[in-house]
Design a protein around this nucleic acid. Structure first.
Lengths: 222, 222
DNA sequence: CCCGCCCGCATCCGCTCGCGGCAGCCGCCC
DNA sequence: GGGCGGCTGCCGCGAGCGGATGCGGGCGGG
């Protein structure tokens, strides 16, 4: 435990979040603690990585949802450039399955934005001292979620077929796309049905969507 | 324009947002301005309405996504109890179509959380003086989005058929469910394809999902 | 009043789909 | 080495699907 105060050099913090309000909230929280010094703010992943390179912060507070791409990518980049940097990942949704991704990307801690501001500071404190340490609870939960249910495993071929089915392709079309005979395409489709417990295209697509095996069409809301 | 400063009595502000970080950011922003005084914070819609009744704030900052229901409901309730209260609606997503809903519910302003903190304060200032005034830009955009594209209109029967298709039902099954002949079911399906520009079930389902005509299966994320 | 739309029903036709069965190839594990 | 499971590939069959077209009734707006 680094319980001893650090009078000379304070822990440098970089805030990466596209919401100005959140950044200001974080800054407010950190500035109340004399251990920390907020050395920069960034609203995008790219800007965050750039500033991290320039400012060499001890801890980065990283939002996962950023306008120019995933905060996971940025986290990966940061971890690659520095193994000792503390990276606290913030996420909007508490039950986010991206926890697992954050772990893989090399985050040091994972805090939902619903948590009180103090908790972010506490996580940052912890991350500054032991940057590669998720809490046991975090790990346990992530593992439980990933390993237990793990829907049906699709072969590469089946995944391709699934995506083509989602495009409304016919058997003939799929066969052409994959350079195989129609019979083969049909076999793949049948296997797909079997694994998904579906009896036809419609059920297969809906089930695949439900299991996250297929990218949701995600309307532009108009 | 109430440009004159208010030395005696300051504008009372109530913050309603389930994220502590955001609340702290807002509080920070408002406390820098001597016109305002943050008189309360609430993390839920119910608590927000309760505090609004007790504290009688001049302006309420209201998040739309709250744990115990929509901020829209709370906004409606507040507006019902007081026509003169300023209500600034905050939302996470800039292009949120809930802008329209916020307008209907009686909000005074609409600010995305990506906006700089100052803008929220500015909106609150504006809302305090003219609580029922959306900006022209807000209105124009909401109208444009609502009236212009408005995807294909499905008849009630077609919507039913669409939902049954999503369940993987066959023509015969659909006919039985709807107590009509198979011919009729087929007719509806054909009409559906026509309206959705689809040639088969798969395309119809994906298009319907993309247009928001069909509830996404939305996995429990494990 | 007529026109357009939604609903319901029907027939014909050709094509596609989904199913069952079969088999070669590869990697893994005993 | 031999067995086994998964991926890939192929065939034929019957049922279901999609397209085109026609008919009628009810309801609402120009």
């Amino acid at each position: 435990m680094t319980t001893s105060p650090m009078p000379a050099t304070r822990t440098k913090v970089l805030l990466v979040d596209d919401h100005d309000l959140i950044r200001k909230g974080l800054r407010h929280a950190f500035e109340r603690d004399r251990q920390f010094e907020v050395v920069g703010e960034a609203a995008t992943a790219a800007e965050g990585v750039r500033q991290a390179g320039a400012l060499q912060p001890d801890v980065v507070i990283m939002d996962l949802r950023l306008p120019d791409g995933s905060g996971l990518e940025a986290t990966r980049a940061l971890r690659k450039s520095s193994a000792s940097m503390g990276i606290v990942v913030l996420t909007m949704y508490a039950g986010d399955d991206q926890l697992f991704g954050a772990l893989e990307a090399g985050a040091s801690a994972f805090v939902p934005k619903t948590a009180p501001a103090d908790e972010v500071v506490a996580a940052a404190r912890h991350a500054a001292s032991s940057p590669s340490a998720f809490t046991a609870a975090d790990l346990a939960e992530a593992m439980k979620r990933r390993l237990a249910p793990s829907g049906p495993q699709l072969s590469p071929r089946e995944s391709q077929v699934l995506r083509l089915l989602a495009d409304g392709m016919s058997v003939a079309g799929i066969a052409k796309q994959l350079f195989v005979s129609e019979s083969t395409a049909k076999t793949h489709i049948s296997k797909l049905y079997e694994k998904l417990g579906a009896a036809n295209r419609a059920q297969a697509l809906m089930t695949a969507l439900r299991l996250g095996l297929l990218e949701a069409p995600d309307a532009p809301k108009f």
